[in-house]
């Protein structure tokens, strides 16, 4: 039996203003576990960017966070439109977000690069028309 602790969140795709609730919940849970604040910060930021992406692009999704012995694993899954060109999407400044999203402070093409910046491992699996799964790890 594994000692790993897991948290599951449904990310509501309908409301931009409530985006970030899952990330805030994760941050609180990790604090209660006494995890190093810098690790919590990295996990929270990466997950928050992912959560915003799910709301902006995919109509919501699911987030699963697991605290392993040597790392924290974040898995974000959505059934949105998928990412046609992952290499392009990883470039800073490249975005398919519309102007109304930029007016809200996002959609500058920094989401995925920020997720990579704050995590030690990141893997994107995406099928156009079916959805995207992003797995990230932050090691202790």
């Amino acid at each position: 039996m594994s000692d790993a602790l897991s948290f599951h969140y449904d990310v509501d795709g309908e409301s931009f203003s409530s985006a970030g609730q899952a990330s805030a919940g994760v941050k609180k849970n990790l604090r209660q576990l006494g995890i190093d604040p810098e690790i919590i910060r990295k996990v929270s930021i990466a997950m928050y960017e992912g959560e915003i992406n799910m709301v902006i692009h995919a109509g919501g999704g699911e987030a699963d966070i697991t605290v392993e012995d040597n790392c924290i694993v974040i898995v974000l899954t959505d059934r949105g439109p998928g990412i046609a060109d992952i290499d392009k999407a990883m470039e800073e400044g490249y975005s398919t977000a519309r102007d109304n999203i930029r007016a809200l402070g996002f959609g500058a093409g920094m989401g995925l690069p920020n997720m990579k910046r704050y995590t030690d491992e990141m893997n994107i699996s995406s099928v156009v028309g079916e959805g995207t799964t992003i797995t990230m790890k932050v090691f202790f």
Binding site: F16, S17, S18, A19, G20, S23, A24, K27, P37, R41, S44, I45, Y48, I52, L104, G105, F106
Partner: peptide, 14 residues
């Protein structure tokens, strides 16, 4: 910028 994500961003960044 005035929306809830400004507060959330600050929260995530400590």
């Amino acid at each position: 910028l005035v929306n809830a994500q400004v507060i959330r961003t600050a929260e995530m960044m400590d």
